[in-house]
Simulated scan of single mutants.
Amino acid sequence: MTIRFYDMEKHTLTKMTIMSLSFFFLLASSRAISSKMGVNFGRLGNNLPSPKRSVELLQIMKAGRVKLYDANDEILKLLSTTKIEVTIMVANDEITQMAKNQEVADKWVHDHILNHYPQTMIRYVLVGNEVLSYTSTDQDMQTMKDLVPAMTRLRASLKTLGINNIKVGTPLAMDILESSFPPSSGTFKTEILPEIVPLLNFLSGTKSLFFLDVYPYFSWADNPTGINLDYALFEGNQTYTDPGSGLTYTNLLDQMLDSVFFAMAKLGHNEVMMAIAETGWPHEGDKTQHGSSKENAATYNRNLIKKMTMVPPKGTPAQPGVVIPTFIFSLYDENEKSGPGFERHWGLLNPNGSRCYEVDLSGKAYKTSY
């Protein structure tokens, strides 16, 4: 693994400092969260099974959670007959109006939550998708500013109704970091601090989670000669010791997660728990997209499930013993997604409902030691 230069004086945290972080808060909070595996249910395809069949397939696959990219009424009704925990989303283009008007937030909650809850086990509402990654237009910048106010209004709507077990969050991408390697150097980009600081204050105050889209595949694909493939796939015996923290890592995912943890800690919020909104590995791609294969996808997702369903929970080197709710991307291959070939081949299932490769979402098949 290639070692990158960084400012030791600015970013180094000693091992003693790490041990003094508030693990007790994290551990106490994580006990209330299950280690069930989740799946992202995207629908950007013109050849996908019906919502009814999709919910049946989620049950057959023993999914413990599902994340929708909207709040589809039909799917939410179908999920009411299951024990699957549900995450729904507010679209990016709904954020500004919701931030301006409490009645907009109240109506959203009435239409998309009250019509289904508690029969449908809605557990999280995620406001927007990777909002802090979009900065090219004036509206993008306005949406960034409106993110936390919209989340605050949604939370107020839920609180007024006495609903306290549905948490409000937002999924962010790894490009929110200015520095991510080694993990102890993790820092947020300066230009998004006006949004990150109030976001962390909100998550801390409501005991919600920091949702992250984290893809070791992309980090490995950007630097295949510097990062060992087995290290990205949770395979082999390679380790990396962070010179700043003294913590030893056995896989790339833990490094990426802890880089965000250290970035939060530097802003005084090491108590905020994390969740993985998206992660996965493509099982097919264009000729130039090396590493996108069924074998690698199966290896990554099986090892991910093994790690995230461990009892007691494994956590990460900087967050040991902590449950990290995780959603695999994605349920289906989606043929209407744009971009390179691999964008259409992240599914656990083919469009006809057959498995792209075998995985056990319950984790029971992977109960050997990790």
Rank of each mutant, 00 (worst) to 15 (best):
R4D: 13
R43P: 01
T279G: 01
A99W: 09
P183W: 10
L209K: 09
I60E: 15
T82V: 09
R155N: 15
N303K: 13
M8C: 04
D106S: 10
K189Y: 05
E103I: 00
Y134G: 00
G226W: 12
L114Y: 01
P312H: 07
L154D: 01
E191S: 09
R153H: 15
I88P: 01
K107E: 13
N201G: 06
G38L: 04
S80Y: 09
M144L: 14
M144F: 00
S185G: 08
D333W: 02
P351E: 12
I166N: 10
M8I: 15
G315H: 05
S185V: 07
S292T: 14
A297D: 11
L212F: 14
T187K: 14
E235W: 04
P340M: 02
G321R: 04
M273I: 04
D258F: 14
A297N: 10
L229S: 11
S292I: 03
L252T: 13
R43G: 00
M273Q: 15
N115T: 14
T288K: 14
A28L: 12
N251E: 05
L76P: 00
K266G: 12
Q142E: 15
S369E: 10
H11D: 09
M274D: 01
I18C: 05
F25S: 11
F188C: 08
S354P: 10
V322Q: 06
K364M: 00
S245R: 02
K307N: 06
R153Y: 02
P49I: 10
V260W: 01
S20V: 00
L147V: 10
T17W: 09
P198V: 08
Y249G: 07
S20N: 15
N101C: 03
K145G: 04
E295C: 05
M310H: 11
M121F: 04
M174W: 00
K294W: 03
L253W: 11
T241Y: 05
D138E: 13
K107H: 07
K159G: 02
K307P: 00
T81G: 04
S133K: 11
F210R: 07
I60T: 13
K15D: 09
L79G: 01
D242V: 06
D73N: 11
R344F: 05
S259H: 09
